[in-house]
Amino acid sequence: MSLTFAFWADAGMTVPNASGATITDGLGPTDRIVYFGSPVAGKTLQAASNPGADPVQISIDDANGGSGIAATAIKLALTAGGLNSAVAGAPLSIGTSIPGGSSIAIYVRTTQGALGVGSYADLSLTTNPCVEA
């Protein structure tokens, strides 16, 4: 059975997130909010490594580590202001026990860096292995 916790385009967890970021060449990073949660109240998400103790983390996964876009192109934060101080490519802890029924806003800043014009599909946002109860 798959997780009911997922990434959503809206706070109401109606539309699964299917888009990333569009950066206009040379015009600076793009900030976007993606939501993480489960629409099912009563569910709880915990880290599989030590449920209830270890944090659930959202990290940037680079499918092609040596090419394309690097994970450091993305910063994650729980607030808009936190993006400024966030470490590029660093995972974001969102709590040790995530309740279902409400979503957590994840602020994502995507920076062009040295990327040229084009589409890059090797990045994803992913959680650490979790268990849902």
Partner: peptide, 25 residues
């Protein structure tokens, strides 16, 4: 005494990044 046996899973969303030529705009 609810016991849940769950396999560890990861929630993932792709993050496609498009760098758009500024001339497009």
């Amino acid at each position: 005494w609810r016991v849940v046996v769950a396999a560890a899973q990861q929630a993932t969303t792709t993050w496609p990044v498009q760098v758009l030529d500024a001339a497009m705009l």
